[in-house]
Design a binder for these strands. Structure first.
Lengths: 172, 172
DNA sequence: ACCGGATAGTTGATGGCTCAACTATTTTGG
DNA sequence: CCAAAATAGTTGAGCCATCAACTATCCGGT
């Protein structure tokens, strides 16, 4: 219990004698990359959230919700479509939309043609908030991500994360 | 209010005439990479969290806390050091450690030499939980990240995220 | 020796997220 | 055409994170 402890990501914790060992631990390079990813995402989202608190009237999640609506016809999207785009649970979306509705940023209407469905519509006030928030948001994304990387690094990052998203969607 | 709306990440929302325009919006490729990053991280952490709920007695955050302690001499770390390593706020760490202490995974002791300080020490029970959790954790990290990417993609991802972490740490 | 400010950590209130349970509607299979 | 299952969305309880305020200790300068 001294050296074998180090790095539960890579070392032989759990190698009980006589028990089938089928875990492929991470090698040094893989572990390094994984930890950079972990720390980087954590600090990135924390810093981006801070930027939103400083300059902006909406949280990061609310901002992305408004962005999705701004790109939809009539600023309108089904709740379920919104949940898919934003990778949010239905429940969380309901709560978030309810809060934003109270602040006048969106409204809800019954969906025509499917009486189970609900449409979420961005209001003019919501659009105004989005427009006001966009400059600080984009500036922060540049400062914390886009301008920090070479163009090909950014491209590779995008491609890699597309693969990761796909793996998470399917392999769940 | 129809076409100019699309993509508040890139388009001219906020371009009031006569007002100085100094925001550099994202071009198409940059925006694509940024959105892949956003979706990928979101789905990745959700899926990894699910894996922890299925097979493991500790949440992802608690697991990483135990990993840090397992790599420290005497399974012991100052609260502030732990907070730095895990990129956690002091308050959040206090609450998390308090919960884990109740479950017997760690204990707290006054730090020798600095009467303000507190040492966090992993218990044998905590180590046992870590050992039990490691295989499923590593398997999930492989399935969702490491094995999904080419070796050079993973390396580039690690390098890129190291840069991002640095930018977030300094430019905050 | 002392005062001001920095550092270490905790606390409690508030608010958001997660989970399970629930209603209502639509679709599917027999 | 009906029953069972799938889909859409909401609700409320409990848990966790965040924030501001607070105590205690240490350091740095005079």
């Amino acid at each position: 219990m001294r050296d074998d402890v180090a790095a539960a990501d890579s070392a032989g914790a759990g190698t009980a004698v006589g028990e089938a060992e089928q875990v492929r631990w991470l090698d040094t390079d893989q572990q390094w990359a994984w930890r950079r990813f972990l720390e980087g995402t954590s600090r990135f989202f924390e810093a981006l959230g801070d930027a939103h608190e400083d300059d902006i009237q909406v949280s990061l999640g609310e901002y992305h919700l408004l962005v999705q609506l701004s790109e939809a016809p009539d600023w309108t999207l089904r709740m379920s479509a919104l949940a898919d785009f934003l990778a949010l649970s239905r429940s969380r979306l309901t709560h978030t939309v309810a809060r934003m509705e109270k602040r006048g940023l969106v409204t809800r209407r019954p969906a025509p043609g499917d009486r189970r469905g609900v449409h979420c519509v961005m209001t003019d006030a919501g659009y105004a908030v989005l427009v006001a928030a966009a400059p600080a948001h984009v500036t922060a994304v540049r400062r914390l991500l886009v301008d920090v990387l070479d163009a090909d690094e950014l491209t590779t990052l995008g491609r890699a994360m597309a693969k990761v998203a796909h793996a998470a969607r399917t392999g769940a």
